[in-house]
Design a protein around this nucleic acid. Structure first.
Lengths: 321, 321
DNA sequence: CTGTTAGCGCCTTCAG
DNA sequence: CTGAAGGCGCTAACAG
């Protein structure tokens, strides 16, 4: 495999000139440049990234840690982040933490091993010793210690969702959300529900459920047993909303006639063509882009906003009237 | 940040000894070892992976290229591959080719830049200049030139699926499959259907559709318009089978009473809790594990089997009687 | 068993 | 604008 030295010899110049020509840092005469290009082509030269990394103390790679890729929301985040990074010549290393703290700690190690320049960290755990000085950004979670994060405007969007149910004539409005172990913007979703209910003097039918991926329909079945006659339901995620739809249908409820459902995320439509949920659609492309932008700032050591909010919009589907 | 040199000085030994102690190659006295351990701890030393990579000409990283992570099958493959690799201390770089050949070519470049030790390549395109000497393995695709690949026993499993429909009383049995641009094991799915139909002297209602992710229901709607009275349907993927289910239901067909459906993949249940498809379940954990095993052999330059077949089993759900 | 040494391939001053 | 030279941090071969 040819090295920069071979190219230099072939082109009849010094290695420094080749390096400058290839990296674009510093000036090189057109004459030298064209001879170098020819030599590169002739020798089929490709710069060795490891050597570059060692010298520049960076890796042109970013890691993302998610509980599991096997979840539509995370899959889409990863898709968008990768798309964004590849445009800047960066690579994305994906790690499934499987919600295990020990695996997440390994990921944190990667920063120190110079295997990655930064980390996008989506976790349910608290990590004491990470702080805002490290090249880390989170999504939807407060990792604390000044770690910047990107999130949708969960509270406002959720209020709109609940108010929409009222507007469409629902009178007994319930809410199901997943619980979160760390302080998360996601909890704003049921907070908004509670606030709206309180303001309107309406009774609450709230369930904050602790469940695993795959147990969604158990949760919704249980909910309908407990509150059989709600006619409006705001659900904290589309996976759960989809489960609620099927639970309700199997119980003989007609959606949206007997029960209207509004979800949150806007990711299910890619996987399940039916039903088309009325749902708060997060702008995941924008979230990913913002996360990458903030992360790059952190990598360069620049100051950056601690919290970035991306607008989410209510999208009307077939589960409301 | 401490280097191996600092550790050596602190421990009062040479750098070679430290290197041997840390990597485990070569013998080190217990005395030296304990002093080195202490120094490592005191200095909070972490070996620099870039330097290691440069020296060893490897990266302890593998890349996987898929059309999109936003597909349950690929998401699960990635999940399993990552799990497998992380146990061997390897990292996984994920690339969405978005079905674009140009992006795939970039990925191939990564190998040469020594950024990755190997590639798991899942593509719809032909790449002329890759061959069995490169550390590449594919899934379900014949990349040709001796590139090894891992696949389910598509043909046999599909035959069983079609025969199961017959067994359950279906008489007008149709089949919908996605088309593939390269020679792919996936085409065995409709080949099996055709063979069974032929052997039994039954008429075929086959549609090999060329469509994009997201257009599934267009395909199935069209299919039912063309063949309104099939009462058994073998579908080449779960995404499509799910779409067929919803298409049929919206047309007033009762599944499984009027129409029985068998899918292929076994991945939808994680994303959509309903309906529980009767489907040929691929053993993706085993596929991923085999792909990694074969890839490691290729990386070490060992000979390996060109084709690895993993058993897929028919799983009975609620879309057959 | 151990210290020393010579690079891995590249980038980046530094004189010219 | 350019060539030469000195590392980046680590491993592996070598002579003790």
């Amino acid at each position: 495999m040819a090295t920069i030295k071979d190219v230099a010899k072939e082109a009849g110049v010094g290695v420094g000139t080749v390096s400058r020509a290839l990296s674009g840092n510093g000036c090189v005469s057109d004459d030298a440049k064209s001879r170098i290009d020819a030599a590169v082509k002739k020798l089929d030269f490709v710069p060795n990234q490891s050597a570059r990394n060692l010298k520049t103390q960076s890796s042109a790679a970013v890691a993302i840690s998610v509980p599991t890729v096997k979840h539509p929301f995370f899959a889409k985040i990863i898709y968008c982040v990768e798309d964004c990074l590849s445009k800047s010549g960066y690579r994305l290393i994906v790690v499934n933490s499987q919600d295990e703290k020990s695996k997440e700690i390994k990921i944190l190690e990667m920063i120190r091993q110079a295997r990655v320049d930064g980390i996008i960290f989506i976790t349910h755990h608290a990590h004491e010793y990470i702080d805002g000085n490290m090249p880390i950004v989170s999504v939807d979670r407060h990792l604390g210690n000044g770690v910047p994060f990107v999130t949708s405007n969960n509270y406002d969007a959720s209020r709109k969702a609940v108010e929409y149910l009222i507007e469409r004539g629902a009178t007994k409005i319930g809410c199901i959300c997943g619980s979160t172990k760390v302080e998360s913007e996601v909890s704003m979703r049921y907070k908004a529900y509670c606030d709206v209910m309180e303001e309107r003097g309406l009774e609450r039918y709230l369930e904050v459920a602790d469940f695993k991926h795959g147990e969604e329909m158990d949760v919704t079945d249980r909910y309908f047993k407990k509150y059989p006659d709600v006619d409006g339901l705001f659900v904290g995620s589309d996976m759960l909303a989809n489960a609620a739809y099927h639970s309700a249908m199997l119980l003989g409820k007609n959606v949206p006639r007997d029960l209207q459902i509004v979800g949150f995320d806007g990711v299910m439509d890619e996987w399940c063509p039916h039903p088309k949920l009325t749902t708060v659609t997060q702008n995941i492309e924008a979230i990913a882009e913002a996360a990458v932008t903030v992360l790059f700032k952190r990598i360069r050591g620049e100051k950056c906003e601690n919290k970035t909010v991306i607008d989410a919009a209510l999208k009307i589907g077939e589960t409301t009237r």
